[in-house]
Design a protein around this nucleic acid. Structure first.
Length: 494
RNA sequence: GGUGCCAUGGCCGAGUGGCUAGGCUUGGGUCUGCAAAACCUACUACAGCGGUUCGAAUCCGCUUGGCACCUCCA
């Protein structure tokens, strides 16, 4: 019996704005697609929040025993810098500026992305397809959409006919827009526009002679439009209709709206059952954005080399900070907020170090299963990680009380406590304990060296040579190591 | 202008028509040579104005403020 059979997950579906009971198309199996990064520059922290949010969702669904195929693409072509019409492929623009091959740029930033995701302890997706690896499929689906009468060719480019599509489908159902309003609100600035309507979007763009990234197609040399890759890759790997599609809130319109239109036009069915949108991470109250400069790189945050924070923070602390907010809420990043999160994170880590050393009693003075159920209930309710974190703090408090003897626990319950605490902290939230950043070998060496210092200090204290003992303590603190005198001797944390 | 979302105690951040999330900070205490850490303990908030209700911070309306999308952006 898998956990999912006894845990009913409710998730907020952007398609109708309601929390719905999640039922996969195939029992026990889930297909999930998340829009990945455009690899033309380093991912910033805001990008990371979305991927960390969906990593948490992926982890919880797996924890429940579902077999999840998680597809997250790499956009290495096709996003335009300007208007669809005088647009230039983002990747090739960057390439020209830096005098690099386009695929060199792609490689560099893909590696950076993977590296950052690894630091945040995000699991790799099951499949990570690239747009450039699916040009053939994109050309095929464009032919299909043209055949169905939902697209037209103009001067070597192909456009999706939104107005025609809207006559027997509903364009705008995800973002709550209707086409009439959109048309009414459009001022027609581009008289030379190839498109029949301003709302039409490109499926294929003709490449100018100097455009580096280009592929042959039935309409001439060009490159695929912005929204097509996701439709192609999601349907290829997950089917024409699949369970969950995720992405950042800012992709809801037009990107996801266009995906729905493309899917419905090409396959005749709605592509996705549950649309999930992760909210933005703001910095100083404003959305992070590469173009405005209001952004912070993960590396700058980890090292403390940035203008916003007074010191560096470990990836796990940053992840914990994000988990303290709901994925659908805007989260503002600030020095005070992350500092507070770091202290809370340390508190939970203190409890974890006690987990294997707790005294066992004949009976328990509380109901551990009640606590465990609350943890699951939090996650089952649209992945409410802030509530889960609150429960982990309750658990941490419980651990301290058992340790100090004001609560007691029997062996059976202790096993539940250990298992549940670890399941949620490590597996579901994807956090690491503060000591874990060190590799085993290093820890051992450090332990030995530290023990020597601790012994020396203890001796100095015994001789009431406090000048020496305080010197050891204070200088270690400057080096980032904190000594903690307890009843059973002195321990240290980094 | 259009479409959504949000306003919670010093700070961050959940949530619910009635039973005081949680973390951080701060005050008091235990421990300590002194600290730090840890632990115990205290601190009853929901933008404003109306309305519905026995009862609303939670539902409805208005006002004010903020954010996101409508153009590439997670």
């Amino acid at each position: 019996m898998e956990l999912y059979q006894s845990n009913e997950v409710k998730l907020y579906n952007s398609l109708n704005g309601q929390k719905e009971v999640f039922t996969p198309i195939t029992p026990g199996r889930i297909g999930m697609y998340v829009c990945g990064p455009t690899v033309y520059s380093n991912v910033h922290l805001g990008n990371c929040r979305t991927f960390i949010s969906f990593d948490m969702i992926f982890r919880y669904l797996k924890h429940l025993g579902y077999k999840v195929r998680y597809v997250r693409n790499i956009t290495d072509a096709g996003h335009l810098t300007d208007d669809a019409d005088q647009g230039e492929d983002k990747i090739s623009k960057k390439a020209r500026l830096e005098k690099l091959e386009p695929m060199e740029v792609v490689q560099q930033y893909t590696l950076d992305f993977h590296n950052v995701m690894r630091q945040f302890n995000a699991l790799p997706p099951s499949i990570e397809p690239t747009a450039t690896g699916h040009i053939v499929e994109q050309i095929e689906i464009i032919k299909n959409i043209i055949d169905k009468g939902h697209a037209y060719e103009r001067n070597g480019s192909v456009y999706f006919d939104v107005v025609k599509f809207n006559t027997d489908h509903r364009y705008g159902k995800l973002s709550g827009r209707n086409l009439e309003d959109m048309i009414a609100n459009t001022r027609d600035l581009n008289a030379q526009d190839e498109k029949e309507n301003a709302q039409d979007f490109a499926l294929w763009k003709k490449a100018n002679p100097d455009h580096i990234m280009r592929w042959p197609s039935p309409w001439g040399d060009g490159f695929p439009g912005w929204h097509l890759e996701c439709t192609v890759m999601s349907s290829k790997y997950l089917g024409d209709t699949f369970d969950i599609h995720g992405g950042g809130m800012d992709l809801k319109f037009p990107h996801h709206e266009c995906e729905i239109a493309q899917g419905e036009a090409a396959h005749g069915c709605s592509p996705v059952n549950y649309w999930l949108h992760a909210n933005m991470l703001t910095l100083n109250g404003k959305k992070m954005s590469k173009s405005t400069g209001n952004s912070i790189l993960p590396k700058e945050l980890f090292t403390g080399d940035n203008d916003f924070m007074e010191k560096g923070f470990s990836p796990s602390v940053v992840r914990f900070f994000m988990m303290q907010a709901h994925y659908r809420s805007v989260l503002d990043f600030s020095n005070d907020a992350i500092l507070a999160a770091e202290k809370g994170y340390n508190r939970i880590n203190e409890a974890i170090t006690l987990l294997d050393k707790l005294p066992v009693s004949q009976t328990s003075s509380f109901s551990i299963n009640e606590w465990k159920e609350k943890c699951y209930a939090a996650m089952n309710d649209d992945f409410n990680t802030p509530i889960l974190v609150a429960e982990l703090f309750e658990g941490a408090s419980l651990i301290q009380k058992i340790n100090s003897g004001s609560e007691s626990i029997n062996q059976e319950d202790l096993t539940v406590l250990q298992q549940t605490f670890r399941d949620f902290f490590y597996d579901v939230l994807g956090l690491k304990s503060s000591q874990e950043s060190l590799i085993g070998d290093e820890t051992e060496h450090l332990d030995k060296a530290m023990q020597l210092l601790i012994d020396l200090r203890a001796q100095a204290r015994a001789n009431r040579d406090f000048a020496t003992s305080d010197k050891i303590r204070d200088q270690l603190l400057e080096a980032g190591i904190q000594l903690k005198d307890g009843p059973d001797g002195t321990t240290y944390t980094l």
